[in-house]
Nucleic acid binder design. Structure first.
Lengths: 161, 161
DNA sequence: TATTGTTATACTCTATAACTATA
DNA sequence: TATAGTTATAGAGTATAACAATA
């Protein structure tokens, strides 16, 4: 358990990290906003999947996922094939054009980070990646059922029994 | 200079960090969206300042800053006093109510992070904060004048002369 | 009746451009 | 003429709720 002061500082840094994300976003192709890019990259990384699985990986509502997926499908970067096992579901698969787009996106993000982080050591980059992955993991199910935080009265007690 | 593979992984983690930010945002008071919160926290941290300075700290366009500031001013959390030295400028100052709101926000973010990161060590939290600060710094002036990334052809050369 | 996915609506954040007032 | 700040407009991302089709 870290000191409150450190949590406070982390909160500040997290709130400011949007600037970096916007910086990365500005480097994206004009026809591929960040939402579309995220869909493509996840499909490349994890392989074909259903909408619900993708929504989970994106950590956004399925309605949002549906819109992003509709966009990349319009671009012919993915196909939405009916799932023979469940006619309500659709299986998302990258097309060859989609795979080419992923390659382009990967190349772009590598080039952008190489540009801005040229003076970072390999170890520092890995450390940051690792900590960010852990952070995501710790927040994990904050969208799930009982994600409501305790009220100010609760949990403020120093040492839970 | 890190390996491309590491940059690729970092890009993935950064693109996914939005989920954590949204998680933090869900904990905010209903009358204080993240844009307003950022304004208040920066004023508390750095003291009174002009719009242009705030826009720089927020790393967003001044038009965006102006809207956020208008919102917190409506709430009476800040005052916008004319700058005697330059009648075009306005000096932003927290009101007592604004300071109270900052205290509430700080408490909330600490509670949220304490909740989700209860198994992190102090050192890990500090490390992540430090790396995020450095990341922001490295991206620094990516909004500035010649922030345009070199074209695919350039900079790909391994060792610039 | 519950679940998968889509669509309609609304809200927040952001950027560009046009504008006012002052330097 | 240039700069500080505001406002209008537009675009992207997200969430909630209502809906359709299927399990």
């Amino acid at each position: 358990m870290a000191a409150q002061r450190q949590y406070e500082e982390l909160a500040r840094q997290l709130s400011a990290i949007g600037a970096v994300k916007r910086g990365l976003g500005r480097g994206l192709p004009a026809d591929c906003p960040s939402g579309s890019a995220a869909v493509l990259v996840l499909l490349a990384r994890h392989g074909e999947m259903r909408m619900s699985r993708l929504a989970e990986l994106l950590a956004v509502d399925m309605s949002v996922t549906s819109r992003h997926v509709a966009h990349v499908a319009e671009k012919e970067w993915i196909h939405r094939d009916p799932d023979p096992a469940d006619k309500r579901s659709r299986i998302l698969r990258l097309t060859p054009e989609g795979k080419a787009k992923v390659a382009e996106l990967t190349d772009l993000s590598i080039r952008t980070l190489t540009h801005y982080l040229h003076d970072w050591t390999d170890d520092e980059v890995v450390q940051l990646s690792t900590l960010l992955a852990r952070l995501r993991d710790s927040f994990g199910d904050c969208r799930a059922a009982s994600a409501r935080l305790p009220h100010p009265a609760e949990e403020t007690t120093r040492t839970p029994a």
